[in-house]
């Protein structure tokens, strides 16, 4: 049986370094997917350059194996086109819309057998936001016994 677990952390300072622990259900057999993104909180302006969507870096590891199984840049998901050049070209002619540029997000596939029910993580803010106040969302796709 599959289950999705969402772990959220609020990041409030520029250059924050955060150690986190994610408790998994007792019946977990393995982790089959990971997805991470951020959501800016209401009233907080984004980066001066909308193409600069990198927010920070995230590492996840299983303590019993002392091994990192996920390490990636975390981005602020937005509806803009991924290619900066096309974006600039489009920006002059029309407002980019989500349906045009829209992609479909998929989980990063992993197969991590878990015996202990704990995942450790480390997150470092590298954003260029004027005010740093956002929510880090970590989605874990779990396979339960």
């Amino acid at each position: 049986m599959h289950k999705i677990l969402i772990h959220t952390e609020e990041i409030t300072a520029n250059g924050s370094k955060l150690q986190l622990q994610i408790k998994l259900p007792e019946t977990i057999e393995k982790v089959t997917g990971v997805f991470a993104g951020i959501t800016r909180l209401p009233g907080v302006a984004g980066p001066a350059d909308p193409a600069d969507i990198n927010a920070g870096s995230l590492w996840l590891r299983i303590p019993e194996l002392r091994d990192v199984f996920y390490a990636d840049r975390v981005q602020e998901l937005n509806h803009l086109l991924p290619e900066e050049a096309i974006q600039e070209l489009m920006g002059q002619a029309m407002q980019p819309e989500w349906w045009f540029s829209g992609t479909r997000y998929t989980f990063f596939d992993v197969t991590v057998p878990v015996e202990d029910t704990l995942i450790e993580g480390f997150y470092e803010d590298e954003s260029s936001f004027a005010t740093v106040h956002y929510r880090l969302n970590i989605y874990l796709n779990l396979y339960l016994k």
Partner: peptide
Amino acid sequence: QELFPEDFEAKLLMSGLGV
């Protein structure tokens, strides 16, 4: 049976013309 938990963002279940 829970398919997606509370706070699962809608953007992760959307698809655009690029797909």
